[in-house]
Amino acid sequence: MISAAARDALQGWLAGQKALKGASDNTLDAYARDVAGFLAFMTEHHGQTQGLGALARITTADMRAWMAFTRGQDIGPRSLARKLSAVKSFYRWLSEREGFEPTAVLSIRAPKFQRKLPRPLSPEAASEVIETLEMQSLTPWIAARDQAVVTLLYGCGLRISEALGLTGAVLPIGDTLRIIGKGNKERLVPVIAPARAAVARYAQICPYDMTRTGPLFFGARGGALGPRAVQKVVERTRAQLGLPATATPHAMRHSFATHLLNAGGDLRAIQELLGHASLSTTQAYTGVDTARLMEVYARAHPQGRG
């Protein structure tokens, strides 16, 4: 049982994450679960409800006990690192507010894990996925919908949540789309002709009325289309084409970035198109190696062109 004071502190911190950092609802839900789970463990661990005073006295040994308990729940190193990051952020905020020393919590190191690099599809495989998607449904408007969504992922580099978050207000789609991405950051992405055509074809035969505030992409029963439906149709498509399990909707976004870079695109421009805060994230997305990165840098830098 978490104390009322601790629960209020958690809600205050979450409100700050939303207001100051623009955290998405999904991120806030994950933060709430992670920190609430930590507080619940400390309550059990100490055999009493953890008020703010008790939270200020948490030791390094307490933190190690929590990490050992969490690992025992079949939580992998990556997920544990995420949970620890949320707890540290909460403690940093709480210590500033309550005036205590948070070193015992902040000094704990996250477990090391092997970062999995995304695996983009080849240009040929990406085209085959888009062409074959249309064969996965006998209902013409659903087939057109699935093709339109995945064409936007590959043609514009959208996240699946960004594509499914589009409303009828974008119709008719022009040469660019204004996208609100992670952290409510806005970016403008160009829309290639095949993506415009795919969306227009779907919109023309969709049986549901599209409004400026309603979803652009509908599920079979008329509600907003969810990501799982897109993941399923891509799973069926990759099985049909004999592609690996790494061929996911998100891999289409990776492929967009990699194919642009291989065609001579500028890494900074691709970073803008993807909505990445960090160039290192774009580097990981594109699977670009250091030699390729240095080649791009040398071509762009005034002294590198000498």
Rank of each mutant, 00 (worst) to 15 (best):
R33Y: 06
D34I: 05
V35P: 01
A36Q: 09
L39A: 05
L39M: 06
A40K: 15
A40C: 08
F41P: 11
F41C: 12
M42C: 11
M42N: 14
M42Y: 07
T43K: 11
T43R: 13
E44L: 10
H45L: 13
H45I: 00
H46C: 09
H46V: 07
G47W: 03
Q48T: 14
Q48S: 10
T49G: 14
T49I: 13
Q50Y: 10
G51T: 15
G51M: 07
G51C: 04
G53Q: 11
A54V: 11
L55H: 04
L55Y: 02
I58N: 08
I58D: 09
I58Q: 12
I58G: 14
T59F: 04
T59D: 08
T59G: 12
T60F: 13
A61S: 09
A61N: 15
R64C: 08
W66S: 07
W66V: 00
M67R: 07
M67A: 08
M67I: 04
A68E: 15
A68P: 05
A68W: 05
F69H: 15
F69R: 15
T70G: 07
T70W: 02
R71A: 14
R71L: 11
R71G: 12
G72V: 04
G72M: 06
Q73G: 11
Q73V: 01
Q73A: 06
Q73R: 14
D74E: 12
D74N: 12
I75Q: 14
P77A: 05
P77N: 02
P77S: 02
R78Y: 04
R78E: 14
L80F: 00
L80C: 01
L80R: 03
A81I: 01
A81V: 02
A81Q: 02
A81H: 06
A81F: 00
A81M: 02
K83E: 07
L84D: 00
L84F: 02
L84E: 00
L84K: 05
S85R: 05
S85D: 03
A86F: 03
A86D: 08
V87F: 03
V87D: 01
K88W: 01
K88G: 03
K88N: 01
K88C: 04
S89I: 00
